Computed example of a mutant assay.
Amino acid sequence: MISKDTVYKLLEEKLVGDLFLVDLTISSSNVITVVVDSDTSVNVDTCIELSRQVEHNLDRESEDFELTVYSAGVGEPLQLPRQYNKNLGRDLDVVTSQGEKYIGVLKEADQDKFVIEVSKKERVEGKKKKVVVTTEHTFPYADIKTAKVVVSFK
């Protein structure tokens, strides 16, 4: 079986600038999956370059493998604090490990936690119409099941 350390060392040479590794998995049948992201953007050429780096430095004659390299897309859950920082100001769909769901604007993110601002209409005593109430929620990363960027076509 191909080791993660071997593949990581091969990738490390090409992870330059604002490009970073989000996830690296290798199954028992040598199916290698590499997910990368960037503070700006990841294009197809970058994925091809990373794929070639691994492909050309592993010997298929000694161990056969399958390799997939792709960028963390908008529909992918955020996994690293760096990804949260990249998406400040965007709407997030957050599901906690307790199953609670929140949708709000990502306001802050650091190495331990992030903050979203949730706005919703609620009935306030003394008012006939519902009023928009805004609350901030702070979540430690350990308490999050999934957090995805909400795609809006407004």
Rank of each mutant, 00 (worst) to 15 (best):
I2Y: 15
S3H: 06
K4C: 06
K4W: 01
K4P: 05
D5C: 02
D5K: 11
Y8L: 13
K9R: 11
E13P: 12
K14D: 09
K14S: 05
V16P: 09
G17H: 11
V22W: 01
T25M: 04
I26E: 06
S27F: 06
S29P: 03
V31K: 12
T33Q: 13
V34H: 00
V35A: 04
T40Y: 08
V42S: 09
N43H: 10
V44S: 12
D45M: 14
I48M: 12
E49V: 12
S51T: 14
V54D: 00
E55W: 04
E55T: 12
H56K: 14
L58Y: 11
D59A: 03
R60Q: 14
E61P: 00
S62M: 07
D64V: 02
T68A: 10
V69M: 01
Y70L: 10
Y70W: 02
G75D: 13
E76Q: 03
P77T: 12
P77C: 07
L80W: 04
R82I: 13
R82L: 14
L88H: 05
L88V: 11
G89H: 03
G89K: 08
R90I: 05
D91W: 02
L92R: 00
D93H: 12
D93E: 09
T96Y: 07
T96A: 10
S97W: 02
Q98S: 15
Q98L: 12
G99Y: 06
K101T: 13
Y102H: 14
Y102N: 02
G104D: 11
V105Q: 03
V105A: 02
K107W: 01
F114E: 00
E122F: 03
R123E: 07
V124L: 08
E125Y: 10
E125M: 11
G126M: 10
G126N: 03
K128C: 07
V131R: 07
V133C: 12
T134L: 05
E136H: 05
E136M: 06
H137E: 13
H137P: 04
H137L: 07
T138P: 02
T138W: 02
P140H: 08
P140I: 03
T146I: 05
T146S: 12
A147K: 01
V149M: 03
V150W: 01
F153P: 02
K154H: 07
